[in-house]
Amino acid sequence: MTFPRLVRLLYRNLVVNTDVGTIFFVVGLPTLYLVFFGYGYQSFLPGDKSYLLFLTPGILSFQTLIAGTVTGSMLWLDRRFGMLAQLLVGPFTRIQYLLGLILTSLILGIAGGLVMLVVSSVIVPHYIAPLGFGTMILAIIVGSICYGSIMLLISALVRSQNTYNSIQVSVIFLSNFASTVFYPYSENLPVPLRILFLANPLTYISNTVRDGYMGSYSALDLFQFALTSMFTLIMLLLSARAYFRAEIATT
């Protein structure tokens, strides 16, 4: 039985990302964040407020950034180590390869999110309503495509390894810590930080996932979701444009 080409590409992408390093990055790192940050900050909080309960949906949304990073690195490595050119002189088209990467980001984001949900349920048991679960998954889907696109854009534009690494680390840091993944947005923040928070898609993804997790929906969720989807679409188009214009191999 021969599977469609896109499925074959997707399978290949997932198989080459099952090395120990990537698995640690996808599952181990968020778990460490959850445990260390969760228990660390919990000790500061007075009364019965649960920081772990706040952090869990943040970490779930953080998975979208991780999934996007893995996907961006994949394009980078395939350009650097010749597999992109090899696939494109084989039975695949450029668009199939791009769709394969986007789907990889999607699957890694959802799978990573589900794993973290299981891990978090051991640390902090919490009931999630079906509608809340659906909201979370939807936000993770959009987030994974969003960060997949952002990282693909960087991979397609950058030619040197050092530049790529520097930009990638900066994007991860800024997205992660200038968002509501680890702490809530506050008007008391300095203005530049407030701007960063509000310009960061992970803030909205994190807010939506958190509202789904807590079962506290509002019209704001719909607005945030629409805003993130629109930004994602723009990023997807920009990354596709950069990818189609990029040289197949880096130097």
């Binding site: 021969t2 599977f3 080409r5 074959r8 590409l9 399978y11 290949r12 198989v15 080459v16 090395d19 490595l77 180590f81 010749g82 597999m83 050119a85 090899q86 696939l87 002189v89 084989g90 039975p91 695949f92 191999a249």
Partner: peptide
């Protein structure tokens, strides 16, 4: 067609898995 390019091209996995993946990719 088959193409062996001048530049290197492989997946970062085992030698054996490179064969498996390539066969799978080609259906």
């Amino acid at each position: 067609i088959g193409v062996v390019q001048q530049s290197e091209s492989y997946d970062f996995t085992t030698v054996e898995k490179n064969f498996d993946l390539y066969g799978m990719l080609w259906g």
